[in-house]
Design a protein around this nucleic acid. Structure first.
Length: 438
RNA sequence: GUGGCUAUAGUUUAGUGGUAAAACUCCAGUUUGUGGCACUGGUGUCGAGGGUUCAAUUCCCUCUAGCCACCCCA
């Protein structure tokens, strides 16, 4: 076997700029949203704005950082989200802030702190905001992600349980997501949950030995979650476990029944899932989750949080909310190949030849700005061919061609990109003429 | 936080212990001021760092990131 001996490596100076890379990456689980993604991102935002307008929700935005205690007390110390998933920031004093892992406690805080109780009661809000969770990222699971959601604060009316669900479904409808289903359950109030949990523990008591390890832990820490276990060996226990519906108090039962009636009235199809419990401590009564066809994770969820305000030291204010993961919705849209025709923003493209024309062209863009007509340009490319190629790619209807000759004669060529015809128009009249045509 | 798989151009993917390939995209050109089609050419420190070796993109280690399972959730 012949061995080729190579000559010494010669460092070749590369002139290109494209080979160099910045030795930084976006942080784990945090991603750039590039221009192309905004057709989805903006579509969802547009949908929540429209739905909110018609269902009477006002936009709210709270700080990215909050006192860590807000989440410890609100979201709950026993939750995974608070125990392990918060990004924390030390202030220069001795305070500790947390990047919000969810929106609800902040919104409730803002509602009380700003006296909105006297402005809108119940308070109905929507948000479209980033939240942060320190997790092991995976498909559909990120450390920074957007949530879109509704909150109705200071009402225990079942109509709002239904409305929050309906409004969320309307968003999915607006963005043409198919096969969205709602799973629904009630987990009772503070009066009836304790006896129920007792019952549940009684049922599971002699089964601990045969349950999975996590369930053994759940048994003492968060018994409700026993119902949520996905382990094979625990499934058989779940079937015969006492169901919340059979043990909740009359008031909770009546409330849940009302919610269902409102949903029935609105012809919303739903699925009652007795094993549905949620991961945050503050939930009570109605809880729900949204699923979309072809996506294996929940795209959203929510429920009542009748005691959250009290827990935070505020007034008694029953409330309900929902939150959906924007990236997960986007993923579902892509999977379902939801077709979005991007709006044609640019109807015309400015093409120049020569420095004089370039200067003249810049002034012309100002004219179009004043006239409210967006015109695309490419001042970095001097050749006519390149500029026309770009104009073609932009799919504009017209190219405005300004060469030396035209500058001299104070005219401009208006080229119809569809049929290739072009006419000469006095420079002074081009704004008016273009406006006429688009 | 635990276990596993992966990492080659902007993208999707070949390939190799002897300085890398295709398709699409992008950029430029195919003569003089006109896009789409076609043709020609260009753009890569093979994720980062270290080790073994005469030689590493290839083998080994560490790190980072992505993905999968668990956990949890949006």
């Amino acid at each position: 076997m012949p061995i080729k001996i190579p000559h010494a490596k010669k460092k070749v100076e590369k002139k290109s700029t494209s080979g160099k890379k910045i030795p930084f990456q976006s942080p784990k689980g945090m991603h750039d949203r590039l221009p192309a993604d905004f057709i989805y991102f903006d579509k969802i935002e547009k949908a929540i704005k429209k739905v909110s307008l018609f269902y009477g929700f006002d936009k709210i935005e709270t700080p990215l950082l909050e006192d860590i205690k807000l989440f410890e007390r609100g979201t709950g110390l026993t939750t995974e989200v608070v125990q392990k998933q918060m990004f924390t920031v030390k202030t220069k004093g001795d305070g500790v802030l947390a990047l919000r892992p969810e929106m609800t406690p902040g919104v409730v805080r803002a509602y009380v702190e700003n006296g909105l109780l006297y402005v809108s009661n119940p308070g109905k809000f929507f948000y479209y905001s980033p939240v942060f969770r320190y997790e092991q990222p995976q498909h559909g699971r990120f450390r920074q992600f957007y949530q879109v959601g509704f909150e109705v604060i200071n009402s225990d009316d079942a109509a709002y349980d239904a409305q929050v669900i309906i409004a969320s479904l309307r968003i999915f409808e607006e963005i043409k997501l198919k096969g969205v289903t709602v799973k629904l359950n009630t987990i009772g109030c503070k009066n009836c949950r304790t006896p129920y949990v007792k019952k549940l523990k009684e049922y599971y008591k002699n089964k601990i030995a045969t349950m999975c390890r996590d369930c053994a832990k759940r048994y003492t820490e968060n018994p409700l979650r026993l119902l949520d276990c996905k382990q094979e060996k625990c499934q058989s226990f779940k079937a015969d476990a006492p169901q919340t519906l059979d043990f909740i108090c009359a008031a909770c039962k009546a409330h849940f029944k009302l919610v269902l009636e409102f949903l029935d009235g609105a012809q919303v199809p739903y699925l009652i899932d007795a094993t549905l419990v949620r991961g945050l401590d503050y939930y009570s009564r109605t809880v729900f989750e949204f699923f979309a066809e072809g996506v294996d994770f929940a795209i959203g969820g929510g429920g009542r949080y009748d005691y959250l305000s009290e827990t935070l030291g505020g007034p008694k204010m029953p409330a309900i909310g929902s939150a959906c993961g924007v990236e997960r919705i986007m993923e579902a849209m892509k999977l379902q190949q939801v077709h979005i025709t991007p709006k044609q923003v640019y109807k015309a493209f400015l093409i120049y030849m020569g420095d004089q024309a370039k200067k003249q062209g810049m002034l012309l863009l100002d004219e179009f700005y004043k006239a409210g007509i967006p015109v695309k340009e490419s001042f970095a490319k001097d050749s006519l061919k390149s500029q026309l190629r770009l104009a073609d790619k932009e799919k504009v209807d017209y190219a405005l061609i300004l060469g030396q000759r035209e500058v001299f004669e104070e005219v401009i060529l208006l080229r119809d990109m569809k049929n290739g015809t072009q006419e000469t128009i006095p420079l002074k009249k081009i704004v008016v003429e273009l406006k006429k045509r688009i």
